[in-house]
């Protein structure tokens, strides 16, 4: 069994709406040899949260034409919705229910809610638990899995992850899981973002130097991992990733029998159309590593036979 290769349209940020239509985006995803397409509801749905009927027709026509499978649908729970107050759990669950329905209608099997946070370690606002619990039956009915992301600076061994795992165990649900963002494995510093200063990097933005989670720790949560966003920032012409250690991540995922989606999330320089080439390099790189692992293990099996 191999990984399932997908691409998130997040990769094409800033191209989308200035240099790339939804039709163009489907074309580039399909041409990279990907089987799956990931979107962000509030970015890629025209007229979100109530797209016109014509937009749904266009979506289904594109899915058919390019033969792509909708994978994960990103949404937000805007806890600090107003300066003067926080979203209630009822409002948060109503929003989640709406996104679940939209995602299901468009053919997605995963929904990633991005919860508002309350501290520097990205602890989700406490409304998350009641909000999600209220929509678990709906998720089960639609057979959509809700999967918040484990994203730097939050590592795997962290109370945020424990909270999600406790929730799964307490409710017994099969419609809530973990999404791993491969940025947690970043082990070399990112270049400074526009506007970022050395002082910021030394303090609050230190995680941009990489939080270097050991890939072996994936084993501790893999039973709950339902989706992976293959975050990366720069891959050079020799297919060398400057920040994410794919040569360790890929064999570990293979060893753990992960056969779910790897959905590219390019998050680097935003020059027009650069993301298209960067995503293709990432797929070439990861597919090479996967082939090499498979070749090695099958020859190893033959040697033992």
């Amino acid at each position: 069994m191999t990984f399932r290769y997908g691409i998130s349209l997040y990769s094409y940020t800033d191209d989308f709406g200035t240099a790339m239509t939804l039709d163009d985006a489907f074309y580039h995803v399909a041409e990279a040899g990907a089987a799956g397409i990931e979107i962000l509801g509030e970015t890629h749905l025209a007229g979100y949260p109530e797209p016109p009927a014509a937009w749904f027709d266009r979506w289904f026509a594109l899915v058919d034409r390019f033969g792509l499978q909708p994978t994960n649908y990103g949404c937000w729970v805007d806890s600090c919705v107003q300066k003067r107050r926080v979203l209630t759990a009822e409002e948060a669950s109503a929003g989640l229910a709406r996104d679940l329905q939209l995602a299901h209608r468009l053919g997605f099997r995963f929904v990633r809610p991005k919860f508002g946070v309350i501290d520097d370690e990205l602890t989700p606002h406490p409304i998350w638990e009641a909000a999600v619990e209220r929509v678990l039956d709906l998720a089960a009915k639609l057979d959509v899995v809700i999967c918040p992301e484990i994203h730097a600076p939050t590592p795997i061994r962290h109370p945020v992850v424990e909270g999600y795992v406790d929730f799964i165990q307490r409710t017994g649900t099969r419609h809530f899981g973990l999404l791993i963002d491969t940025g947690i494995f970043q082990d070399r510093p990112l270049p400074y973002w526009p506007g970022e200063t050395p002082e910021m990097r030394e303090n609050a933005m230190g995680f941009l130097n990489g939080i270097k989670v050991p890939v072996e720790q994936l084993a501790e949560v893999i039973d709950h991992v339902v989706f992976i966003q293959a975050k990366f920032h720069h891959i050079d012409a020799q297919l060398h990733d400057h920040h994410i250690p794919w040569e360790r991540i890929v064999p570990m995922l293979k060893k753990l029998d992960y056969t779910g989606w790897l959905s590219s999330e390019y998050e680097g320089v935003r020059d027009p159309w650069l993301a298209i080439e960067q995503v293709r390099r990432q797929h070439a790189l990861i597919r090479n590593l996967e082939r090499a692992y498979d070749a090695q293990t099958s020859s190893g099996e033959q040697a033992h036979a």
């Binding site: 937000w76 805007d78 919860f115 946070v117 501290d119 520097d120 990205l122 526009p194 506007g195 609050a204």
Partner: peptide
Amino acid sequence: MRHPYFPPQFQPVPMR
């Protein structure tokens, strides 16, 4: 902008 998923100390975020 307020990005609810950013730590509170960064709010509001200046997009320049």
